[in-house]
Design a protein around this nucleic acid. Structure first.
Lengths: 95, 95
DNA sequence: TAGATAATTAGACAATTATCTAAATATCTA
DNA sequence: TAGATATTTAGATAATTGTCTAATTATCTA
C-alpha cells in the first residue's frame, strides 16, 4: 500500500485521477489540462501506473489511460478499517 | 485535502495511525514502537495533527494523541466519488 | 526551588521528488 | 522510406522531506 499512498500525495496526480473519472484520456489530452511539460505529466502517469491506480493501453500513436478501481477499493478498505466500520468479507491488512 | 494525503504518504505515519486505532497513546508510548528518535516521531505527530488526522491533549507531563475520524470520513468520501462516477459507466464503449 | 521526566523546537544534512530540456522510441501516412 | 505526431526516457537541478543531535519548554515532585 505504499506506492498508492505515495502516488496520491501529489496534487497533480490527484487531478489526473479526477480527469479520468468520467472518461479514458490519452497522455496528450491529460497534459492539455496542466501548465506543465509533457515529460512531467508522463512522469506522473508512470507513478500512477506503478501504484496500480491507472492502466495504460496503446492505440496507434496514442496511449490511453484509464482508472483501475481495484486499488481504490483496497484503499477504501484501509480507511474503513481505521474508523472501525466493517466491510463485508474484507480481511484486515496493515501498511 | 492536500495535507491529509501528504500525511498519509509516509509509512511511519500510517503505522502511528494504526497504533492509535485501538487506544490513545502518549508521544513517548508511540515512540517506543519505532527505531527512531523521539524528535523524529514528534515531527511526524505534528504533520498528522496539521492534517487533522489526530488530536493531541496534554495531561500533566504527557501529551496524549488520538485519532480524529472526521478527516478520515472525508477521505473515504473522496474515494467513493472516484469509484461511483467510474462505475456509473459513462464510457463503456472503450477501446 | 532544584532536579527529573516528557515532549517539542531549532538547525543541519542526506535522500527523495518534481520539474525542465534534449534525445529517443513508436506509430501513422503520403 | 521520409517526415510528422504522440509519448517516453535520460540526465540535470532545485525544492521538499525525513532524520539526527542539541537545546528549549512544560510539568511534576521532593
Amino acid at each position: 500500500m505504499n506506492l498508492p499512498f505515495k502516488a496520491l500525495s501529489d496534487p497533480t496526480r490527484r487531478k489526473i485521477i479526477m480527469l479520468l473519472r468520467k472518461e479514458d484520456l490519452t497522455a496528450g489530452e491529460i497534459a492539455e489540462h496542466f501548465d506543465m511539460t509533457k515529460p512531467s505529466i508522463s512522469h506522473h502517469l508512470n507513478l500512477l501506473k506503478q501504484a496500480g491506480l491507472v492502466n495504460d493501453e496503446r492505440k496507434g500513436q496514442n496511449i490511453y489511460y484509464s482508472l483501475n478501481t481495484t486499488v481504490f477499493q483496497e484503499l477504501i478498505g484501509w480507511f474503513f478499517d481505521i474508523i472501525n466500520v466493517k466491510e463485508d468479507g474484507k480481511n484486515e491488512e496493515n501498511n
